[in-house]
Design a protein around this nucleic acid. Structure first.
Lengths: 243, 243
DNA sequence: TGTACATCAGTGAACGCGCGTTCACTGATGTAC
DNA sequence: TGTACATCAGTGAACGCGCGTTCACTGATGTAC
């Protein structure tokens, strides 16, 4: 009675967190079927055999549930990317970039509506709270880390293109963000030039742009073999960041 | 009574098409305020001082109204891009590409919710009918035309990268689509290599990826000066397609 | 030109539905002594 | 260990709202002779 409860909380606590999980899982299933706007608390609870008002013991409002799903989504995507990247030999920068790109696309294809929730049209009248920021940046942190380790390793880089003065302050912020990462040595700070950071941001944009275009149907009529096109596209983007 | 009506239709016809326009305009205003999912026929008609059932004289269903808005949206965006591009000297390929890019972003910023309707999360349970395809391709047709005229003019191109066999059939389809355009001479067909078409598709993806990232808030924390970053980004993408 | 009829626009009530959220409540689980 | 009390989970009814769509209708506009 004692140690077990001490370690995992009371029986009530355990049941509670299991129910929170079940609500989110059910909501995710509904998300996959009806999209973010079709997500209804009543439908979720109905599906679970609960009465609709009971959900308020677990989430104070629909928006809070949405927030939880968004945070979970970013973490799920972030974890998938981190795992895929970690499986590649550290010195194989091209491989690491490709693993990230494939992980993003793979996750998106497996969680289409979650992807749309994160990267599609923002939900009207809903504004994401601050606690979504950190999980939202997990993927870009991985990409920045690859970039940083590349310059530290002295990987040959493409000839730098000029970066206008008006863009440099923003790149300084990004550089600062990158070097905050404990896994990025401060040695990288001086080596991450404005040009490289721009390249990184553009690769990142190109990656998500490609996935969004495919998922949202804007490549119909031009690309049928999505696997092949995406792989080639990402190889080319990888060359732009020096992998 | 005769010629006027012959030319513009009966008075009833004219009132009718004006009302169709007014309904669409009101719906667009609602779109801008509540987003695509918040678009309600009742609210639109209420706003117009009509009774809700009256809208069925003009649109058989909510989905048909949505379709009309989507088609109008693509045409509005397409027209903006065509006009911007036409204003630039034909031989200034870089300028033409930049004009297109700026026109897309400018239109998107002015019509945020319409942009989201076209390029954001697809509306759940709604599938776009075939008549949206042609207007949807206006922007890409302009881009393909620039590319085609560049190769015909013998503009120096970046060193071609290999295109895997698995991607070539898709590029053949795109090349065929490009040469169907009466403004693209058949001379271009042989010159539009697989590599160039890939570059074109990637630039197109990068353009819309950048606009979507900005509009949907994914550059918060990394880019503040959106104007400057976008301009530089598009210059770089322009270099990739040889402008 | 004038009349009879057909077409159409807009009305108002209704159908059937679903939603988020609140609230007073019952009964079970946990806590303190 | 046993009892008294506090905490919490889940219930069921209700509030107040909005939605898309149908339908029989009135009255105005158009058409044919």
């Amino acid at each position: 009675v004692t140690t077990d409860l001490d370690r995992f909380g009371t029986a009530r606590d355990r049941v509670r967190s299991e129910l929170v999980k079940e609500i989110k899982d059910t909501a995710r299933r509904h998300l996959a079927e009806f999209g973010a706007t079709g997500l209804s608390l009543r439908a979720v609870t109905r599906d679970m055999g609960m009465v609709s008002s009971a959900v308020y013991r677990y989430f104070p409002s629909r928006d809070e549930l949405l927030t939880a799903l968004i945070i979970d989504g970013y973490n799920s995507l972030g974890l998938a990317v981190e795992k895929a990247e970690a499986a590649v030999k550290k010195s194989d920068f091209r491989g690491r970039w490709m693993a990230c790109a494939q992980a993003v696309r793979g996750w998106a294809l497996e969680h289409r509506h979650e992807y749309a929730l994160l990267f599609g049209t923002p939900v009207p009248k809903y504004s994401a709270p601050a606690d979504t920021i950190e999980p939202a940046s997990r993927v870009s942190r991985v990409l920045l880390r690859i970039l940083a380790e590349m310059v530290v390793a002295g990987q040959p880089m493409p000839a730098p293109l000029p970066v206008p003065k008006s863009v440099r302050p923003d790149m300084a912020v990004v550089r600062n963000f990158a070097t905050l990462d404990p896994l990025v040595g401060s040695a990288a700070a001086g080596l991450l030039t404005d040009d490289l950071l721009v390249r990184g941001l553009m690769a990142w944009t190109g990656l998500f742009g490609a996935v969004s275009f495919e998922l949202f149907g804007h490549r119909q009529g031009s690309v049928e073999n999505h696997n092949a096109f995406f792989a080639m596209e990402m190889e080319r983007l990888g060359s732009q960041i020096g992998t």
